[in-house]
């Protein structure tokens, strides 16, 4: 554990809590892509199957259980409890394509051709692109509530901080996992436009509206 990894995890945790608070307080999931949330739930489910086979630490286990439980709770809120507020007609990204491409890539490029390893690799590839339906939705509507943009900023920062963690681990511990690193770079890269808008608009107290 290093400081980049810890702040990254805390940023990830904050993102999930911000999203749950937004939905719960406003009794609405408007502006949130149910498809991105379904993809994140698939990511956690495939990656954290090792909860049953591999113990790392209390911290690791607690975080995994929280991420799994909160993602299923989010899905429940969007598709059941507050489904009347879900903007289905704006959430039109073809997310099946992301799943198919991630499955194929995981089968072709992995560290070891075993079920658990391929599921882990699939979760890494899918996580890299899972935010696309959400970003697509914002592009389509041209705006996002400020709490939704705080959510996205925390979620995007998390993988960026993991990149710093991987650089640190490479130099200090000699660890290098190209699958995680390259996917993390792609994942963080997808947020670049959003980061720019967040820093230039939301941080100055303006709403996140896309330039026409």
């Amino acid at each position: 554990m290093n400081v980049f990894r810890l702040i990254g995890d805390m940023s990830h945790l904050a993102a999930i809590i911000i999203l749950l608070i937004k939905i719960w307080r406003s009794r609405s999931c408007s502006g949130i892509s149910g498809k991105s949330q379904l993809l994140f739930t698939a990511v956690f489910t495939c990656r954290y199957l090792d909860l049953f086979t591999n113990f790392v630490s209390i911290y690791n286990t607690t975080m995994k259980i929280f991420f799994l439980a909160s993602s299923y709770a989010t899905i429940y809120l969007i598709f059941m409890k507050f489904k009347a507020t879900y903007n289905r007609n704006h959430d039109t990204f073809r997310f099946e394509l992301l799943i198919v491409v991630s499955v194929i890539l995981a089968l072709l490029i992995n560290h070891e051709f075993s079920a658990t390893e391929i599921l882990w690799t699939f979760s890494i590839y899918l996580e890299a692109v899972a935010i696309l339906p959400q970003l697509f939705m914002i592009t389509k509507t041209g705006e996002a509530e400020s709490i939704t943009s705080h959510y996205l900023f925390a979620l995007g920062s998390y993988r960026g901080l993991y990149i710093l963690n991987w650089i640190y681990r490479y130099y200090v511990e000699g660890h290098l996992d190209w699958i995680a690193v390259l996917s993390g770079i792609v994942q963080t890269g997808l947020y670049c436009d959003f980061f720019y808008l967040y820093i230039t608009r939301v941080m100055k107290g303006k709403n996140l509206t896309l330039p026409a």
């Binding site: 990894r5 560290h111 993991y162 660890h175 995680a180």
Partner: peptide, 10 residues
Amino acid sequence: VMRYMKKDEL
């Protein structure tokens, strides 16, 4: 070494 790295991260 690789296995350790990814299994201890979230």
